[in-house]
Design a protein around this nucleic acid. Structure first.
Lengths: 190, 190
DNA sequence: AATATAAGCGAATAAATATTCACTTAAAAA
DNA sequence: TTTTTAAGTGAATATTTATTCGCTTATATT
């Protein structure tokens, strides 16, 4: 098996994501993925021992990437609200531009493909988000409620928003994005 | 094929839901479902032409049921906020108590199993929710933002909340439920 | 250049899964 | 009770899909 940052691995990942978004995790076969990636089915097995391993690796890569992108430009010394807003926009932008990843991660949530180990590692990546909320609470800008609850509120909204946007029942523009941030902020602010 | 409100159909649906929540839509086979339901695999085909049809029928049934339950006790003549709160609690209670359904519906969202036709029929069932929000806006209790946006906000929060609750990162009690409703109301109120 | 090693291929095989069907059992009608 | 019809069965079949493997092609090493 080759290294994970190989060009071809990225290509395989991209193809898998595209297909999952289109056909659901249920409907994607190794044959589909190889065809989409323009390689032979056997080649997939040069890079991954099994379909299982492919999916788990993709899941881990997506999670990692998504957290990294979220905190881009975040400075803990700068004032809270603009920093929070920046992260919020980062997440939304990321989810919108990488819709396939969003769908994939959501589908993985209840999938038997994802192992306990992969799941736990993913959970640990949420730590920065918890810290962010804790900071907001300490500065008395955010309601003094359960941190998990507050995060859930913030993330759930975005997931649904992105989903509805992609399925056409909502068309987002700059104004609507601002409105949505305000909704979110009004909910969380103390 | 037999009638849809048959006892056995309910039993099949229940088994399918249970398994989807546990193994994801991807991991459930007709063999699994029949075993869980305590019937022979062949018998499934007495009730449904194919797996495809079974999934679509289950999806339709879940959506219908969920809308019906949401509006239980709603009186358009009564004041808005308590009525809204009642619906909000109905939905949350329903999603918590029927977690399998919640998971199933979410998994179906991007699944190739669900046909365009089934999808459209499901969408039409959302009408009462739109009307509810419109009423709130008319009475100037709810922000004058895009109705779809407001609904998305409300529903997304709940889905994520229910998910996190079931996976143990949040433990809900009466107080937390009240807090969460307040978060939601603070977001939506004008 | 000659040799060795790795990457890539895709038809062939193995495993999993949906679906059928000849048959049995139960229920309804005569 | 006898006959007819429907429901239920689960092993057998068909289909789909993951995985392997002998082979070819490219890349690296000597």
């Amino acid at each position: 098996m080759k290294l994970k940052d190989d060009k071809k691995v990225i290509q395989i990942f991209q193809s898998a994501l595209k297909l999952v978004a289109k056909k659901g995790l249920s409907g994607v076969t190794m044959g589909d993925i190889s065809r989409e990636a323009g390689i032979a089915t056997g080649t997939l097995y040069v890079y991954f021992k099994s379909k299982d391993e492919l999916i788990n690796a993709l899941f881990a890569a997506c999670r990692e990437n998504s957290v990294k992108v979220s905190f881009k430009g975040y400075n803990p010394q700068a004032p809270f609200k603009p920093g929070f807003r920046n992260i919020w926009l980062n997440i939304l932008r990321y989810k919108l531009q990488n819709f396939e990843e969003t769908v994939f991660l959501e589908q993985c949530y209840h999938s038997p493909f994802i192992t306990v180990d992969t799941r736990e590692k993913a959970q640990q990546l949420s730590a920065p988000f918890y810290e962010l909320m804790e900071r907001g609470k300490k500065e008395q800008l955010i309601k003094n409620a359960d941190t998990g609850l507050l995060l859930t509120f913030m993330i759930g909204t975005m997931n649904e928003l992105v989903k509805q946007t992609h399925y056409g029942s909502i068309t987002l523009n700059r104004t609507k994005i601002n409105v949505t941030f305000d909704l979110c902020w009004d909910a969380l602010k103390s």
